[in-house]
Structures are given as C-alpha cells and as structure tokens.
C-alpha cells in the first residue's frame, strides 16, 4: 500500500490522498488543494460575497426596515431609474468623481515632478505633503468646515481682505460641490504623488540622457519619457481613487449633509441616507447596486491596467 502510494506521488506530482482518477486524460483530480483553500473561500464568502448577494436580493424585495416583506420583481428598479432625483444624483456623483480625480492627478503629478528633482529637500517636503492623506475624513471635513465658514473662516476673511465677496461658500448651491471637490482633491493628491514618484524613480536615467543628446528639452523629456513610463501606474492610481470617491461620503456628511438643495448628494450618500431613513430599503438597495456596477466596471479597467503594469 505504502509502496504504491509513494510510487504514485513520484510519478505524478500532486496526486495523493483524496485523488480520483481523471478518466479522460489519465491525470488524477485532487480535491486536497480545494480543501486548503476552503477556509479562505468561506471567509471571502461570508464577508464579501454574501453581503453583496444579499443587497442584490434586497433590491428585488419590499422591506419593512430590515425585514423582507415580499418579492416585487423589478419594481424597485423601475421606481429608482424613472426618478429624476436619481439621475440628478448620478450626475452629481460623476461630476464629483471626475472633478476630484482631475484635481488630485494634476496636483499629485505636479508635486511629484517638482519634488523628484529637489534632492534631500524633496524627501523632507514629501513627508509634509503626505500629511492630508494621513488624516481621517471627518477631521479633514471639520478643518475645512472651519476654514470655509463665511462668518469666521480664514478663507472668506482673506477673500474679503483682497476685495473678493466670499458669498455663502458651502451654503451656496452652485459652489458647494466645487468646494467639496477641491477638498477631496487636497486630501487625496498625496496618494497620486507617492505613486507617481515611485514610478518616476524606476525610469532609467539613460533615457533622459538620450533625449538630451538628441536635443530634446524638458517638455520632450516629460512627454516621451516620464509620462510614457508612469502612465500605467497613473491609470491604475486614478481608477483606485475613482472607486474610492464613488463610495466616499464622510466628507459630505460632515461638510454639507448632502445639501444645500441636494447639490452634494452623491449615490453613496443617498444609499447611506436611505438605509438610515427609509422604511422600505429596497429602492436604496438599487442605488447600492448601481454604485456596485459602476465600481465593477472601473475594477475591470483597473485589472487590465494593472496587468499592463505587472507584465
């Protein structure tokens, strides 16, 4: 018995206890590896997949708070997707994501480029610039709420000093979203800076020297060496941030509560508010599913870009 098992293990690696012969190609099928993976798969199922499937199931149900009271088919989807308020929220969310991303990428890239050539000073400055990224969102929100307060905030005060009318700041329906975008970009640009710096430091110096020999200036170096090399990293960083922005709501809760007049109500904030306020949370589950689908789409793009980075 022992001899035959040893022989099997020697002739066919990975085949042993629990193996069953594969009648098609003669290779034995082993369930042992699946057994080893089972705890991880179980944990993954419990903490990620089950809640996701449950929200999906919930989106087809009528509920009384968290109690399911009946299957309603696509009624929740019809209710949400036919609501103009929902599409307004989608527009606000996309504006928020695109605006914040643009700000963060531009600022992050600028900081990376400047500090990459600043020697030891750059390293020190980089640590200080990382500061916003290390703060919790509620702290960031509270700080900016004070900075932008139209009565006693330093920013409206400085605007008044230089002759500008600060207006209502976060109380202005036309200004609240741009201000939230600026704050989000301020908070997250250090992440872009770190990722871009890491990518820049892996660029061979010879490439820059080659451009210099060919008479290329700083712009050519940036366009054809730096940008070409860091673009995949930048792409995956941007997608990570997009997913984060789409699900982010602490800043909005602290700074505007979704107002004024719904001008800063994003999909995630609406999902949060609906879960807390609504008796029937089926339609809220639909909003969550929409966020999930957008994130999955972004995730697919992210995976492809990451594939480009890693090989």
């Amino acid at each position: 018995m022992l001899a035959s098992r040893t022989q099997a293990a020697t002739t066919s690696p990975g085949v042993g206890v629990g193996d069953t012969p594969d009648t098609h190609n003669g290779v034995r099928f082993s369930w042992i590896p699946y057994l080893w993976f089972a705890p991880a798969i179980l944990v993954l199922f419990l903490i990620t997949l089950y809640p996701t499937f449950f929200v999906g199931w919930l989106s087809f149900q009528k509920t009384r708070y968290y109690e399911l009271t009946g299957f309603v088919g696509l009624a929740n989807y019809a209710e949400v997707l036919s609501s103009s308020a929902f599409w307004n929220t989608v527009f606000v969310s996309l504006t928020y994501v695109v605006g914040s991303l643009t700000g963060a990428v531009v600022l992050g890239m600028a900081a990376a480029l400047v500090l990459n050539n600043a020697g030891p000073t750059g390293s020190v400055l980089r640590v200080f610039i990382l500061f916003p990224w290390t703060l919790s969102m509620s702290v960031v929100g509270s700080i900016w709420l004070w900075l932008l307060n139209p009565s006693f905030g330093p920013i409206p005060y400085l605007m008044q000093v230089i002759g500008l009318e600060p207006g209502l700041m976060l109380g202005d329906p036309g200004l609240a979203l741009p201000l939230i975008i600026i704050v989000t970009a301020w908070w997250s640009f250090p992440y872009v800076m770190v990722m871009a710096t890491a990518a820049m430091q892996s660029i061979p110096q010879e490439l820059y020297e080659a451009v210099e020999i060919d008479g290329g200036g700083a712009l050519v170096k940036f366009r054809y060496v730096t940008l070409t090399h860091i673009l995949p990293t930048l792409g995956s960083t941007a997608l990570t941030l997009s997913i984060m922005y789409l699900t982010l709501m602490t800043l909005i809760i602290v700074m505007t509560g979704g107002g004024p007049l719904g001008s800063t109500t994003t999909l995630s904030f609406e999902a949060f508010r609906g879960t807390v306020q609504a008796v029937n949370i089926g339609p809220t589950a639909v909003v969550s599913i929409v966020v999930l689908l957008i994130n999955v789409a972004l995730g697919v793009v992210y995976t492809r870009l990451t594939g480009r980075v890693t090989g």
Partner: peptide, 10 residues
C-alpha cells in the same frame, strides 16, 4: 439655521 448638517435627517 437651514443647513443639512448635524442632527436627525438634516
């Protein structure tokens, strides 16, 4: 105060 921050439901 007409703002939506703080409290129950804004």
């Amino acid at each position: 105060p007409l703002g939506a921050t703080g409290g129950i439901g804004g």
